[in-house]
Design a protein around this nucleic acid. Structure first.
Lengths: 166, 166
DNA sequence: CTAGGAGCTGGAGTGCACTCCAGCGCAAGC
DNA sequence: GCTTGCGCTGGAGTGCACTCCAGCTCCTAG
């Protein structure tokens, strides 16, 4: 499966340049979103046909994936834009761009930890229901204090919380 | 450190019932959000003083933590409400509630995996910058195809991507 | 008893990230 | 050559989750 020569790629884009529909399908971003991102300055590298239709070369595709990663991990659109505005790949900007990414990295890690904690909370709650059902008990939230405490204790003893904490 | 007797708790709430400000500080939810959640039916178990001020017994606090976990893990407010509307702790509703939580659990796991992937993408990008800086190279996004491919290859060879993939 | 701060309510306002639409042009199959 | 459909643009609209506000009451310290 020989990759088309680089000359060919830059000179006369082969079928590796995708139309907006294909990109939408490949990335999961809606067509409207792709257009909107571009207007908002999040997507450089998008080319046009003579007729004005968008064409996405592989580099644009890769870029979109990065933008998706940043957006999904909670970076606001405005911040992604600032990241992108940080120059056309000049060496001088690399440290700053890297710093931004590292900051984002840290946030992702934090978010990851939080998610895991929250997952533990939800799992613990599921365990509570399992107990209640097993014992044929009513109540749970607006339940008497003793029961809650009882169950919390049960869970702790069973290691439910601890096991799932991380 | 003897916990106040259960009778005492239910009969004459001691200082373990918190005011809205304390709850806000403890949970990180804004006062407005606490009031709004309550209006929206996400927070049962909140009591009132004679003067109409909110009082949060420990059970309410615990409930808030669950709601927070659900919200932070991406459950829409409307869904949290539906979960809560599912009856006042009657046994019959437990399976349904549990099912909802299990569904949420699955989504959290999916989100976790996605986050980890996205983290890998960002880290890979950081590695790219590190390479570029180390070699004193410009360009990066709008860079020539060769360079990207070169770097991608480098990263793969260096195991940067693979190491971080999971 | 009074002054200042915290809380209350209902409702309006905000910010973000899309999403939809009208009105148009290009393009390809019949 | 004409229809059918995709794509384009600028701008308006939407949904969600808060956030702010006016105008009031309540509570506490002096």
């Amino acid at each position: 499966m020989p990759r088309p020569s680089l000359a060919a790629v830059t000179a006369a884009p082969p079928e590796t340049t995708l139309g907006i529909r294909q990109v939408s399908e490949e990335t999961g971003l809606s067509i409207d979103t792709l257009r909107w991102y571009e207007r908002e300055g999040l997507l450089p590298l998008v080319e046009r046909t003579a007729g004005g239709q968008r064409r996405y070369p592989p580099a644009a595709l890769r870029f979109i994936r990065l933008v998706q990663a940043l957006r999904r991990t909670g970076m606001p659109v405005a911040d992604v834009r600032r990241f992108i505005e940080l120059g056309g790949g000049e060496l001088a900007n690399h440290p700053e761009r890297m710093a931004l990414l590292e900051q984002q990295c840290a946030q992702i890690e934090q978010r990851l930890a939080e998610l895991q904690d929250d997952l533990a909370v939800v799992r613990a709650k599921i365990a509570t229901y399992r107990h209640l059902i097993a014992r044929g008990l009513d109540c749970e939230d607006d339940l008497s204090e003793e029961l809650v405490d009882q169950l919390r204790t049960d869970e702790l003893l069973a290691g439910t919380l601890l096991d799932l904490q991380r």
